[in-house]
């Protein structure tokens, strides 16, 4: 069956099977490999995307459900070759090592800052609790989210 998705601002049509997840389709058919498959059970957050404006684990969304959906992945944050302020903040704070979890963290951060431009530590921890990182110990990620909030505040 053919579905239409708006992925990072572009409309695409793609043939999908009922047993494919949205993550499968993004990665294997549209070659959008920012979202990763870590656990495949909605526990690690590596596959986090914005789905109709809300953060979800794309490994638990059936592709057919997503017909007509608007999707934002980390690839869609970069504009004209320029990194998004959240991406810059993650680099400046060394908020990753292996990088596998980073696209998920960046998208969760984007969703958090969209709904709450000045999050407290507690707000950040709640919003990012569904994203696991095995390298950093999280402190640099907390700092990166705060730095990103500052950068975005200055931009406005």
């Amino acid at each position: 069956m053919t579905i239409t998705l708006n992925v990072n601002g572009k409309n695409v049509q793609v043939d999908v099977q009922p047993n494919e997840t949205l993550l499968d389709v993004l990665r294997n058919k549209l070659y959008i490999t920012g979202p990763k498959e870590g656990c495949g059970n909605g526990e690690c957050g590596a596959c986090t995307i914005l789905y109709n404006g809300k953060v979800v684990n794309s490994c638990l969304v059936l592709a057919l459900e997503a017909d007509g959906a608007e999707i934002l992945t980390i690839e869609g944050l970069t504009k004209d070759g320029r990194l998004h302020p959240i991406q810059e903040a993650f680099i400046e704070e060394n908020a990753f090592q292996c990088g596998f979890c980073t696209p998920g963290f960046v998208i969760s951060t984007k969703a958090l800052l969209d709904r709450n431009p000045n999050p407290s530590n507690e707000d950040i921890i709640e919003a990012l609790a569904g994203n696991l990182c095995r390298c950093t110990g999280y402190q640099t990620i907390l700092k990166a989210v705060k730095r990103a909030a500052e950068k975005l505040g200055v931009e406005k």
């Binding site: 986090t48 809300k54 919003a127 609790a129 569904g130």
Partner: peptide
Amino acid sequence: IKKVGAYQTRNR
């Protein structure tokens, strides 16, 4: 409800 899963889980 706030103790269920994570924020991503509770969006679904």
